[in-house]
Design a protein around this nucleic acid. Structure first.
Lengths: 342, 342
DNA sequence: TTGTATGCGTTATCAA
DNA sequence: TTGATAACGCATACAA
């Protein structure tokens, strides 16, 4: 394909041109660009000047081809766009990741795709576009991760589902302990008929938070049947809440596995005239902006989402730098934040 | 930097290896990979088989270096992460873009950065990482766009601020006409003291929607002083609404320049006991999910955000394909959607 | 400290 | 229709 007149643009300057401009060899310019210590200071100055004059920026394809490194990492999110943008949890994680990456000279490639993660995305990844990958929100069915791990260093946000190899790297919270703290609070304030809206049961976060719920109720000798599954969306949670109220109209408390889902649940409770927390106390999970966006502040299990993103990126960067001391798992703390809903 | 044992991975297969496997030359394999018609069918079959066997994926750096194309485009968003993730408008645009890109074999690179758009981001773009760029939410101060346009094809979402060159490409709605339709509705239902919460006045969308507001009120012979500026965030709009109510306690209607901002405004109105729409009628702008997220559905000026994203990507792709028939501007329609708030 | 020469994995130009 | 062979722009081992 030839470039038409329409898109004609002045060609970018190359190392070669800078070398000519500065009267040195390509190798020397390369050294200056890469900050090699063994270049005479005066030469550094003149080469730098030439670079400025020509407004030179190294070509990434060439650099990557020669060095066999791309200086960029991918964030793989096996969800559709709507879900990704809809949940403030993702925003927080991405913020943490970019914050860490901004301190380095790695760039981030965002790969959001549930449609065909194993094909187009995997192709992209395997084409040498990135040096490593971060994976969040992965499901049991996501088999592509195994392939991925054989190709490049991978760090997970949340315990990987295939615990086959215990040698994968991940950052997580103790979701069981976290949800236990939230549900225990409901028990402590005297609630006896406690229900839950869960996350997807093909995700560790969904499973573990449900496990914590059950564990507390069993310890307290309470029924554990008021369970409805949802999908970490507000709409899904609203529907689940309707089902739950239909099936167990006598519940006096609700543990919802994410703040975003809790917004959906609270909407249904309001519409059905159930006062919160009087009639039904609600505890959520995340402590994202969604927890304080509504008219009633949510009591929620706080997890350091942004810090987790930061930690994930940090772990991956250390892996890429062949740091031998990297721990395989980084379990971060949760805490219960009390607001009005419970 | 040498690869440590820890990160050792099997090397990716190359064209060369596939050629050996299939018993042909590199050139032939390349032709098969790129779907050249002049290869014997039987050879295509055997090469394809070899590719499958080796699980070969072309290296993008090498391909890009040789072909001088990257097959990827950037979406540049000169805002901080929080704003980007907070506003459903962006989600819609991105969805439209990816939808169009998914039909092609271009990939998207998301560049969200207000911090240092002219440096790190520009460096990235000029390093030959992408063939073209989409720019949304740009401000008057964003001088980097001029540099960008001299480097690669660029398509804007929203009329560019520097109309210096009338030869740039953009997709937009008629914001003036759009806001006029919304404000006119307030006049039509009998409101006489109408205020507005504007977007940033360094952005075309902010300016134009304010212009529309003024134009309608002037035509109707009404006062145009009830104006407070905000920043397209819910919190900013809430603060602006407080200022406005303080200064003009007598307003009976409010035009808010975005749905997200309207959620903030509605919160303040509720907290101050002003009933909507009885005491104060509210018209917003966007028709994003935010318009129906609250307890009261918003009457809002609907713009086809997703379709605009699609159109932007489409325009850029045609530009990259040297399509000579591409129109410089694509102005899409708005419509007023009536709900409960006005 | 600097320069020369080679290779990275493709595409593209020529011949054959 | 196929195969050598020369770019593409940079990094780097080796020589000087």
């Amino acid at each position: 394909m030839t470039m038409g007149v329409r898109n004609a643009r002045p060609p970018q300057p190359t190392l070669e041109m800078v070398a000519a401009e500065a009267g040195v060899s390509r190798a020397t310019v390369s050294r200056v660009v890469n900050g090699s210590p063994k270049v005479r200071p005066e030469v550094v100055v003149s080469v730098t000047a030439a670079i400025e004059r020509l407004n030179y920026v190294p070509n990434r394809a060439a650099r990557s081809l020669a060095s066999r490194q791309t200086q960029s990492v991918a964030l793989v999110v096996p969800e559709d766009m709507t879900k990704f943008f809809g949940d403030p949890y993702f925003a927080a994680v991405v913020q943490g990741i970019t914050q860490r990456l901004d301190e380095s000279d790695y760039t981030l490639n965002l790969l959001v795709a549930s449609t065909d993660p194993r094909h187009k995305t995997m192709r992209y990844l395997r084409a040498g576009n990135v040096d490593g990958a971060l994976v969040i929100s992965h499901h049991t069915g996501d088999s592509f991760v195994a392939d991925l791990e054989s190709t490049m260093p991978v760090v997970f946000g949340g315990r990987p589902t295939n615990d086959s190899g215990a040698n994968n790297y991940f950052v997580d919270v103790d979701n069981i302990a976290g949800s236990m703290s939230g549900v225990q609070h409901l028990v402590d304030i005297g609630r006896r008929r406690i229900g839950t809206i869960t996350g997807p049961v093909d995700m560790p976060a969904g499973i573990d938070r449900l496990t914590g719920f059950r564990r507390v109720l069993e310890n307290a000798g309470l029924a554990t049947d008021a369970v409805e599954h949802a999908d970490f969306t507000a709409a899904g949670a609203a529907a689940a809440t309707r089902r739950l109220l239909e099936r167990c109209p006598d519940i006096d408390a609700l543990f919802v596995a994410s703040d975003l889902m809790a917004t959906g649940a609270l909407g249904v409770l309001a519409e059905q005239g159930r006062a919160v927390p009087r009639d039904i106390a609600v505890v959520a999970y995340d402590d994202s902006p969604a927890a304080i966006s509504g008219s009633i502040g949510m009591t929620t299990v706080s997890q350091p989402s942004k810090e987790m993103g930061f930690a994930m990126a940090d772990l991956l960067l250390r892996l890429l730098a062949d740091d031998e001391t990297v721990p395989h798992r980084n379990i971060m703390p949760t805490s219960l934040v009390l607001r009005e809903s419970a």
